[in-house]
Amino acid sequence: MDLSIISRTGGPVLFWRGPDFDRLDLTGPVVANWVNKGVGLFGDYDLGPDFTLFVPMPAGLHWRELVAILSVLLADGRVVLGTDAQASGSAAPDADFHAFVPLGHEDDESLTAAEEIFVYNPPALALSTPIDEDFIDVNSAIRAYPDVTPRRLQSTGTLLVGDQEIQWTESPNDSSSGILVSNSTPRPEEWATFLCHLLRGGESLLANGMDDGGMTDLASSLGEVRGRLGSWTK
């Protein structure tokens, strides 16, 4: 898998709904562009087989974290996801790593050994992140990179949730039909379905902080629901 399908998919493929009525609808080419920009950003820090990105997701999966995850996985890097989406303190990798966190979590104790800490500002359209020079402002820095990359991107990266390696390129159902709905963070066994669906141009609704009633109403307004991921099970 790579970006060849999603980059040619018209219409929104990722519907982001965050706290405080934060929303963003991303088309396939736009998602591909953000992933390419992420490859450029992390490329300046030696993105490749020896690059590990720790994404603890203390507030649940955000669309910027999803872009970062795909950027590293498609450029032969290693991603380690946190195991507790509701609290800080997920165990960081033992080896050298970089970290990717939302504003307000850059000083978490689990990140003290990180080589670099990339910090993003959660509001969907925030252009910068108010942090000091010890950290990397993702919102501002990533916009400087091109929408395309000269690298050959393919699904050669490694994905771990805690200590569990996820065979993320092997989805049990490769259909892109219907909408996948994820309330906050997919469970470990759901990541392959989620990433394969998105990269094949399938529509996904990613929400954070929305109650079950709101999820039900929104999902039904977007179309036929193919499956539910994460904490939303009703």
Rank of each mutant, 00 (worst) to 15 (best):
R226N: 03
S184V: 07
L66D: 12
D84P: 03
H105K: 09
W232Q: 02
S204G: 03
F100W: 07
D108M: 03
G77P: 14
T9A: 06
M210P: 00
V138N: 02
D20A: 14
R64Y: 06
S155H: 11
E165V: 11
S171Y: 08
V67Q: 10
Q167E: 15
V119M: 05
V138M: 01
L103R: 09
A207F: 03
V101A: 07
D212R: 06
Y120Q: 03
H98V: 03
T52Q: 06
V161I: 13
F97T: 02
G178I: 11
L14K: 05
S231R: 13
G227C: 04
E106W: 00
A68K: 00
E109G: 04
F42I: 10
R143Q: 14
F100E: 01
I5A: 11
S4N: 13
A99R: 07
L218I: 06
R228M: 06
Q154L: 13
S184L: 12
A85R: 14
V181T: 10
P102T: 02
V181Q: 11
G104A: 04
L199R: 10
G202R: 03
L195G: 01
V79T: 02
W34P: 00
W34K: 15
M1E: 08
A114W: 07
G38N: 00
D217S: 09
D174H: 09
G209N: 11
V31K: 02
L111F: 06
L218C: 02
F194K: 00
G201H: 06
H62A: 12
P188I: 08
V161D: 03
V35T: 12
G77F: 14
A113F: 08
A124H: 10
S204M: 13
L73E: 06
H98I: 01
F54T: 03
P172N: 06
L229P: 07
P58N: 07
L81T: 03
V225E: 12
L61Q: 10
E203Q: 15
D76M: 00
G40R: 01
L111K: 07
L159R: 04
N139W: 09
V225N: 07
I179E: 08
S220K: 13
L3K: 05
A219S: 15
G89A: 07
F15S: 12
I69A: 00
D211N: 15
D108H: 02
T149I: 05
V39R: 09
F42D: 08
L111H: 02
M215F: 11
N36R: 10
F15W: 14
G43A: 05
T112W: 00
L127E: 14
L153N: 10
G223W: 04
D25H: 09
Q164V: 15
G209I: 09
R226T: 03
R23W: 05
N36Y: 00
D132R: 10
E65A: 15
L127V: 13
Q86G: 15
P123Q: 01
V13R: 12
